[in-house]
Amino acid sequence: MFGDYTLSQLGSIFVMQGFAGLILFSVYVLMALGLAIIFGQMGVINMAHGEFMILGAYVTYLTASFVQSHLPALFSVYFFVAMALAFVASGALGMLTEWALIRHLYRRPLDTLLATWGLSLILQQAFRSIFGAREVGVELPQWMLGSLPITDTIEVPINGIFVMGLTVLITVAVAYIIFRSRWGRQVRAVVQNRVMAGAVGINTERVDRLTFGLGCGIAGVAGSAFTMVGSTGPTSGQLYIVDTFLVVVFGGAASLLGTIASAFSISQTQSTLEFFMSGSMAKVITLLTIVAILMLRPQGLFALKVRK
């Protein structure tokens, strides 16, 4: 399969595919971060995570249309407003969900899974009723279009670089919140020992609600970023949910570093394979490898050792 290309062409192919993989990596990381917080820290399986992401994407779409028609002067920076709005919308819906649904089910993780699946169906249909079944795309401001030539055979798209920068920023922010802030310490305390955390005066219910809200809010931001590299339809979220869960599980549920490492290896494998075979086979081989590795090492790449 390498025969037809010269060495320098092969080098360029790997760089370009590697960069395509990096964009995929960014989307995975953004989606998986929210999930890693919810699943990894709280142990809750949120099957509606993809829909929270799509909510963020639709909020971005609405903001873009609004700015375009009413405030065209600000169009080049609308994206930052849209992202904040997406975070707030998804986060608020997440907190509402936690209050109405999840908090009754902390002792029954499998039932949470079914209930959130039900929620995802409802949200999907709601999106379809409101925005129509067709996929919508967001118009990007001028400065994000085009690509940056690096050598004469290698060039990288600007929106990809932007999404990657965004990913780094959000990851650092999440890591700071979880591992450095006072609130993050409370979250980790509740995760490790709920009863003791309550006994030392942490309001565990409030922590749960905010954690869930934060996870969903990050999903909203992920959706917002997603609009820059792809179009959004009512069922787009479902396409990514399995991949994202695998990313989180493969990385080791409670480990942020593991999530990033696994998102990186999965996306790189997939996009490199994609060049040499059909997209579906690349995906099959990638997923099969992950499942096989998980069968041999169920705790994932980076396991947190916790005494139970």
């Binding site: 039900g118 995802s120 999907q124 249909q125």
Partner: peptide, 8 residues
């Protein structure tokens, strides 16, 4: 789908 989701 609303019905099915509600059922879940």
């Amino acid at each position: 789908l609303f019905g099915l989701g509600g059922l879940f």
